[in-house]
Structure formats: C-alpha cells, structure tokens
Design a protein around this nucleic acid. Structure first.
Length: 271
DNA sequence: ATGCGGACCTGTTAGC
DNA sequence: TGCTAACAGGTCCGCA
C-alpha cells in the first residue's frame, strides 16, 4: 500500500501523538510478519519515552532513549492512533500503548510489514545500511542517476524502484514520474542521457512532493493515521488507468508487466 | 556483479 | 450465485 508519500503522511500524522510519550505497554497479537516480531520487544519499549520520529525510505523509525523501533508497512500496513480501549479488529497485530491513554495500532492484513528493534544506530541496521539517497534531497539528482546507471541494462522503471539506487519510489510513482519525464519505462537504464535523467529526477521529486501535499494516494484503502484517505489518486496520470486516454495526447494508456509488477505508460508520449 | 523468479500473506475483483 | 484465478501500494533471498 504505502510508498514514500503515504509513509511520510503516516509519520506526520502520528508524530504529535507520540513525541515525549512514555510507552506503558506493548500488545502483540500476531508476531508473524515479514520477520517475526522480537519476543523481547515489550521489554525494550516499556517505560521508555519516544524521543523522535524519523522516516528513512519507507521505514518508520521511532527513537527511544535506549534504541530504535523500526516499522515497515509492507504492502498493506497502516498505523493509526486510537484510544487504548478501542476494540482491536481482525488484522490489528500490534498496539503500543502510551501514557496518554492513546495507542499506536499497526494493522497489516497481508503481513508483509515488519516491526523490529535495534540498540544500534538504525542506519547501520542490515535493512537500512545499503539504502540509496532520499529522493527529496539535493544529493538525489539527474547527475546522480546518470552516474549510477552507466552500464546497467535493467529497465529504467526497475532501476528507479531499486532502493539501493533511491528510496521511496514504488510502483505508482515510478510509472507517474516516467510519464512526466516522457521516458519509456522499458528503456535500459544505461542508455538514457544525462539530460533525460535530469528531467526524471525532477519528475520524481515533483510527483512525490505533490503526493505528500495531497496526503498520499488512496487506491483501495490507504488512510492517514487519522483515517482520512489521501487525495493524490485524482492526480494520477497513468497508474491504474490502462485503456483510458493519455491526458496529453489522447491515445490509450498501455499496461505491461515488468518484474512481476504492472507498469502504465503512454507509448506516444514516452520514448 | 547482475538478473530473475519465488517467497511471504490476505482481500478484492474479474471472469466463467 | 458460486467457484477460481488473477491481481494488489514491497522487497528480501537464493539460484543461475
């Protein structure tokens, strides 16, 4: 479900409820997520105060005095703030109960998400250490993409979805950014000019910023931590619009499969 | 080093 | 209406 804008929306929504709150209790109803939730999670968190909330790629990092809780929402995860007394529903796997009486509740029907804890600098954690730059920083640029892509024959869409190249660009925004940049998703990453990568880097930043501004994209069921959907869906040009006309030229948008994921593009506007 | 398919799950929708 | 198959916002892992 969530790409970078949805994770960012979630972080912004939960942060005010969590900062400087002491964790009173931790309830784990289902520990089988992508990786098992550590059996000693509660002992790491109970009595600790949440000092900061950060996002790295699609990972949400809750910093306590003694370590960092690492949360990934996978394909279908969401975090909500609710009253501790609110009845848990079917896929509500974890509750982090706060002194305020509220609780941070993780729901994840498909269980591709993760909840882990580390005492180390989270940047050195196995899952985070090889991540590429954040797309909304100056470090991420057309020049960077150009350099990284030399001699790569992988399709450019898969290239920009590789978290070692750049974090946070998932299946929706990859299609959207390539559309904005006018680049065919199947083109080999190594055969794209510096100038076109300049356009692509700008398009990625533009589409992610716009999506964050709209509170993310709600296709099926994404909602922010307050339960409100994201409104970026209305601004999607190609994603999930197979057979609809291209907004620019009117020809039918095409849907193909790349790396077992759907890609949407306009064969006339994207070359 | 790179590339590919499979794996992990449940829910929803499309098709017969 | 009901059964089945395909598909869904992610990404790690093992094997060629």
């Amino acid at each position: 479900m969530p790409e970078l804008p949805e994770v960012e929306t979630t972080c912004r929504g939960i942060a005010p409820h969590l900062l400087q709150q002491t964790i009173c209790d931790v309830i784990v109803r289902q520990r089988k997520l992508r990786w098992p939730i550590p059996a000693d999670l509660k002992s790491h968190l109970q009595g600790q105060s949440i000092e900061h909330i950060k996002r790295r790629g699609k990972y949400i990092l809750l910093g306590t005095t003694t370590g960092t809780l690492i949360i990934h929402l996978g394909m279908s995860g969401s975090l909500r703030i609710c009253a501790q007394t609110r009845r848990a529903e079917k896929h509500d796997h974890v509750d982090i109960i706060l002194q305020s009486g509220q609780c941070l509740r993780l729901r994840d029907p498909r269980r591709f998400g993760a909840v882990l804890f580390t005492h180390q600098d989270p940047g050195t954690h196995k899952l985070l250490k090889d991540l590429g730059p954040e797309p909304l920083t100056r470090e991420f640029s057309g020049a960077y993409l150009f350099t990284r892509s030399r001699n790569k024959k992988v399709a450019v869409k898969q290239f920009i979805m590789d978290s070692k190249v750049v974090v946070g660009v998932g299946n929706i925004y990859a299609s959207e950014a390539l559309y904005l940049a006018g680049i065919h998703p199947g083109r080999s990453a190594g055969r794209i000019s510096a100038q076109r990568y300049q356009r692509l880097a700008e398009a990625i930043k533009k589409v992610l910023r716009a999506a964050i501004k709209q509170g993310g994209t709600s296709l099926r069921d994404f909602t922010g931590s307050d339960g409100k959907p994201g409104y970026f869906k209305q601004k999607l040009n190609v994603y999930a619009r197979g057979t609809e006309p291209c907004p620019r030229c009117g020809r039918a948008i095409r849907q193909i499969t790349q790396g077992q994921r759907s890609t949407f593009y306009c064969s006339h506007c994207q070359t």
